[in-house]
């Protein structure tokens, strides 16, 4: 538990020290492959995974409802 708390605090401190990247410096960050989301074409993969696995959610998409799956 202590280890986990320390790790969380460490991550928080690391993030706090991040520098601000200006708009004109975001060429690499704005690359289409750098998008912080699942690809559009992953939609049906996610759907079958939701059917075949118990876990769902926390991927920026739908996390429940809309199908008879678990």
């Amino acid at each position: 538990m202590i280890k986990k708390s320390c790790l969380t605090l460490f991550i928080v401190l690391v993030f706090q020290s991040c520098t601000v990247v200006k708009e004109y410096e975001k060429e690499k960050i704005n690359d289409v492959d750098m998008k912080l989301a699942a690809r559009t074409a992953e939609k049906y993969e996610t759907t079958f995974q939701v059917y075949r696995e118990a876990a769902a959610g926390a991927n920026g998409g739908k996390s429940g409802g809309g199908c008879g799956c678990n």
Partner: peptide, 12 residues
């Protein structure tokens, strides 16, 4: 969060 010019992260 954009962490550097080459690195970014998201939490859900």
């Amino acid at each position: 969060q954009i962490l550097t010019k080459r690195l970014q992260l998201s939490l859900f």
